[in-house]
Amino acid sequence: MIEGISIYEILTLTSILFFIGIYGFITRKNLISILISVELILNASVVNFVVINKYLYPDILQGVFVSIFIIAIAAAETALAVSIIINLYRQISSVEVKDTEIMKY
């Protein structure tokens, strides 16, 4: 609980973070940037869980537990995505989205 800041400010922040992530996922041209956008979305959910837990239901620590698991799984996801990107880079020497278009329609 932070003095002087209500839950509305924090939920507004996480919503903005979430939609920045969605926007980035759609518009970025680089695979690594897309990955960073996905991380923004996941982090928005993490903050959401912690804040809802702390402000609305402080008796049971369910939200905090969920957030710890999300952080761990986000790391696994990133590791896998980066390893696939590295493998792709070895073949086409590029991490741009426009070079991954040999399968279309």
């Binding site: 979305i41 928005a44 959910s45 990107i85 792709l88």
Partner: peptide, 25 residues
């Protein structure tokens, strides 16, 4: 082709689970 399929699958499914989590929150 296989690497491209992998990167498309992991990015889409990561986005999907992120959106799903925001809904669950």
């Amino acid at each position: 082709k296989s690497s491209e399929a992998g990167i498309k699958l992991i990015l889409s499914s990561a986005l999907a689970s992120g959106v799903s989590l925001f809904g669950i929150s």
